[in-house]
Amino acid sequence: METVVAQVFTGLSSASVLLLVAIGLTLTFGQMGVINMAHGEFLMAGSYTAFVTASILRGSALSLPVALVVGFLIGGLLGIALEATILRWMYDRPLDTLLVTFGVGLILQQLARDIFGAPAKEVSTPTWLSGTVPILGYGFPVTRLFIIALSALCVAGLFAMLRLTDLGRRIRATVANRDLAESLGISTRRTDRTTFFIGSGLAGVAGVALTLLGSTGPTVGTSYIVEAFLVVVVGGIGQLKGTILAALGIGIGRSFLESWTSGSMAQVLMLLAIVAFLQIRPQGIFTTTTRSLA
């Protein structure tokens, strides 16, 4: 029982990071059809933001909150830069954006390697997050609880934004039917850019959160991006609820598989399970029914 609780909990916390990465992807993928492979490098940028803030605000309790805010801004600005310089010319060729953004990712990785060096960097955990909290007879690390809470907060905020604000209504309208939204006076260009900012910013936040779990290196993004895309595909493209379910399922499922076999085998089995799942539901958990053929 105790180990089951521990595994669910560990799975939940890694699922939370995955969810933060994937939810930004599902926004941009769902709305613009853009497949942004550089999203993983936005996460990396967030991780290095945490490293830099921690070394500037040496040991201050404020370094983590500051890093979260700055990480969001840096991720978001990188996203906007990418959208404004490259992606805006490629909306009619969504599949090609995958390769272009992979190229951008390569350059960002090498930049990180040149600036910070290839070895992984360690960010020390703030003292107020160290220690464990006993729940159900098991000591939970506070860092992991913090990540779960952070992810829940971000997702709840996103939901509220999409449901309650004007911007959210514009985004939902653009996702549902771009042409109709435009004819109703919504500037889909501006909406696209805002969506890109938010989605990429969330990757930055995920990067900051990741430093609480382990060290960070130039290729930290590549290890997340493939899995995050699978979460998006399994959840159903552009479906926030599906993304949440898929992230939780994949994160917790992997944590259980890892307890039975080795880490790499668990990942292989998870991927095969996903391929099998897509056989049953090729469009993901949730789908928008349309009459279009594509």
Partner: peptide, 12 residues
Amino acid sequence: TYFQGALFIVVL
């Protein structure tokens, strides 16, 4: 690495 990245961007 820079070159390969730039290649993807420019060509595509």
